[in-house]
Design a protein around this nucleic acid. Structure first.
Lengths: 393, 393
DNA sequence: GTTAAAATGTTCCCGCAGGAAACATATACC
DNA sequence: GGTATATGTTTCCTGCGGGAACATTTTAAC
């Protein structure tokens, strides 16, 4: 886990971490929880690891690692395999891997389809169900689909143990995920989606914005793996969704509405946007316009320039280590890669602009499922011994 | 410390917290360090607190608090006073207060002056030295001034114990504070300011951007006290400095150049900025222009409108709980308060825009000294027993 | 004034967590 | 087959916080 070393610690840059520390005393068993979490998290992100590797990574004692791994195995979260052929001198170390029958469900209600997946704790999508819909689904549609698809998926996987369900919703979600405040393309407003899903499925549910889920997935297993300062822009039929990771923390904002980069003003004389302002990025560069310009080089150049301006503005605010483009913005970047990079460098305010990697997102159609599942796994990863799994028959 | 409760925890929104957990095992004595830190931090931010209050706030046992407070007292960091008259039933609880002879030095080199202050661990500025300069000071000037002023201040305070020195520099500072990459108004480029200060003063030194230091101060003892999602804009002779607190974490960016909101594009047909782009906020609204418009209502209205547009853009990205304005932007806000608030609401993309408090920063001339000192205290607050103090005679 | 009640400080002992060392085991190399 | 090396396992130790019992200091009641 060398990438983890780059994260700034609390002393350095996080005043609030220090203040929150004042509010919570620490008991002795917190240590155990923390270390169990550390190990499960390590094999979650790092794939199968030997006990020896875990010992080195954590700095803990061999004997301590032994006890911790045994506890995780007894909890049914990991298995230990005999070592493979390594060719190294010495007793081969046991390989610790997460059990793939521990899964999270991921739900993605969108304008034209409903999709549910079961994702193993190692990040692989084990099963999925998808239904196209002619009209945007209502919350009730989505709950009913989730219930049915969850049953089918559980049967297909032969009784997985489910950590919870994560839902990626294209719209504004309140900061705790309780309420879908406004999902314009779905037509949802002030919907207690989390509660309704939890009641129907009898699972722990987390609901979040789709762009945040997408970035989470890319950070966990995709193009932003282990990079903790990232700006993410996703172009879809429902506009441009944005998200950012700031020093390893997901930008959410006070009410949960942060990261709406699609509505950053990019041309003060631009067209009026549905949000009431002028020249928002998603009004200037959107799917219909790009489709229309598919074979118009000059128009594509202009859109690339606009995208570059947006990226330069975001770099100015966030100074990210990576800018990730997904959806049709990823497509535009593919056909105007050089131009975008060159213009971003020219427009960049800061030195070392070439250090910022602009890249297309990697996970494709699995992105939202993986991200939402990641979100659902978070509680288990943080407290492996204290988080119950639901055996789904 | 009720304000601390609003901070989102790692499960909720901070994927990287989880991953870094994997990289560091926890030993048993980490608990002790954490709890010592919690207590010292509590009295640092919360002022004098009784042991009983600490017991309630931390959830720790009375006996544990007793041991911890005794250790902090033996370290010379706090003193225990007999209780004041409370009128409450029961044995009066001892009052724990930080010792005011524990100080941090704060240095602020600016275009027209050099300033150094000694700030006690309770946040009060105990002593200061200031020198006006006719030309921007060189790094050598600043180091020489710091050395001399530190000696004078130490003499005045009769041998304080110094946690370190923090410097607030108006310019880009690399992420670890090692290098002042570019401070255009000072004319500093690629200066190893931290190392030079540390060698001259023989103290632990931290160097940071002035806007970050300002926001840190406001978060600790000013208008953003305990608010963990904040956008900060400071207008000064050297342009507009920006900073942001994102979920309690200071926005710094991958190289330390984050938060440069002064160079956010605000008018695509605006004037060319020194950074090469057009219509940057600090080109559109700056000190000379505001001075010239001091008695021109229409011009002031226009500048207020531009400021509102910038705030709306920032709200769109950050969804802050508070927007803090300092320097001449605070002045503009004072004379066009209603207009700015009304225009921000009208331009806001999100619902509940009225929840966002726009306010003028509070700490005035002490802000940078307090912020830089806070930064210097951070190591001591995080590890009270493991951080040495320098006795300054 | 005396006594009771309440809140807090202090002391002593316990359980739990990780560390360290000794020992056991499994591989490669000679 | 013996040795060096790396790792798993066992045992004992230290350190930390919790809890109970006791001591102390105040207010309230009579």
């Amino acid at each position: 886990m060398p990438e983890a070393m780059g994260i700034t610690d609390a002393t350095d840059e996080s005043p609030a971490e220090a203040r929150v520390a004042a509010a919570r005393g620490s008991r002795n068993d917190h240590t155990r929880r923390h270390n169990l979490s550390a190990l499960l998290t390590a094999v979650h992100y790092g794939g199968p690891l030997t006990r020896a590797q875990l010992t080195r990574d954590t700095g803990l004692n061999r004997s301590t690692i032994g006890g911790l791994v045994t506890e995780l195995a007894e909890l049914g979260l990991v298995v230990e395999d005999a070592a493979a052929e390594t060719g190294a001198v010495g007793r081969p170390s046991l390989i610790v891997r997460p059990r793939r029958d521990v899964v999270a469900l991921a739900l993605h209600p969108d304008v034209d389809a409903l999709e549910l997946g079961a994702v193993a704790i190692d990040g692989t999508v084990l099963a999925r169900r998808r239904t196209s819909v002619s009209a945007p689904p209502t919350p009730a549609d989505a709950v009913a689909f989730a219930w049915e698809a969850a049953r089918e998926v559980a049967a297909e996987l032969d009784g997985p143990r489910v950590a919870g369900l994560g839902a990626a919703v294209p719209g504004l979600v309140s900061v705790g995920g309780e309420v879908v405040v406004d999902a314009p393309h779905l037509g949802w407003r002030e919907v207690s989606f989390k509660e309704r899903l939890a009641e129907a499925l009898e699972l722990p549910v987390t609901v979040g914005n789709d762009a945040n889920m997408g970035l989470r997935a890319e950070w966990s297993f995709g193009a932003a793996r282990g990079i903790d300062t990232v700006v993410y822009l996703n172009g879809s039929a429902s506009g441009i969704g944005g998200a950012a990771l700031v020093g390893g923390r997901m930008l959410r904002g006070g009410r949960g509405y942060g990261g709406e980069f699609g509505h950053m003003m990019i041309r003060s004389d631009g067209e009026r946007c549905s949000c009431g302002r002028r020249g928002c990025l998603e009004t200037e560069v959107n799917a219909p316009r790009l489709d229309a310009a598919a074979h118009d080089d000059a128009a594509l150049d202009a859109y690339a320039e606009t995208l570059a301006l947006a990226i330069a503005n975001l770099e100015c605010a966030f100074d990210p280590d990576a800018v990730l483009l997904a959806g049709y913005l990823g497509g535009l970047f593919d056909v105007r890669r050089e131009l975008v990079q060159q213009r971003v460098r020219a427009l960049a305010f800061r030195p070392d602009a070439e250090d910022v990697a602009i890249a297309r997102a990697a996970l494709g159609g699995n992105r939202l499922l993986i991200g939402a599942a990641e979100r659902a796994f978070a509680a288990l990863l943080q407290d492996p011994a204290g988080t119950a799994l639901t055996v789904s028959a």
